[in-house]
Amino acid sequence: MASPTARILLVDDEERFRTTMGKLLRKRGFAVEEAGSAHEALVRVQQGDVDVIVLDVKMPGMDGIQALAKIKTLDPLPEVIILTGHANVDAAVEIMRLGGYEYLLKPCPIDDLVVKIEGALEKKKAREKVLRA
């Protein structure tokens, strides 16, 4: 179980998917916030204090990859996990290049996502330690 202060931001345009995923993650002890679009997410990231962002690739307006790039320029600290409909080497390379933590194939079991979130949290903690030192 993750530390109770872990703050997760879910970004997905599919409302029902987002809210249910939020409920499932809250049950597992995360503090979850939701955003219905990449723009909403960027506004939230600017306010700071987000540990992990779970980002859907396919969204109207700005897609997940573009959003990832913007997020990283706004605030490089939060780790970003990308949810994608399809494993694609090019997209994966692009995600890693832009500083994404990991990508997951949709639909995926919530437990897989939790494992990835915990990994991302650990990585973030390690990075913060390095920054402080």
């Binding site: 599919e14 029902r16 998917f17 249910t20 995923m21 499932l24 396919k58 949810l83 409909g85 399809h86 949709k106 639909p107 995926c108 079991p109 919530i110």
Partner: peptide, 12 residues
């Protein structure tokens, strides 16, 4: 894929 993901989440 999207509706599938929604169904999966609801089941969970």
């Amino acid at each position: 894929n999207n509706p599938l993901a929604v169904i999966g989440r609801e089941v969970e």
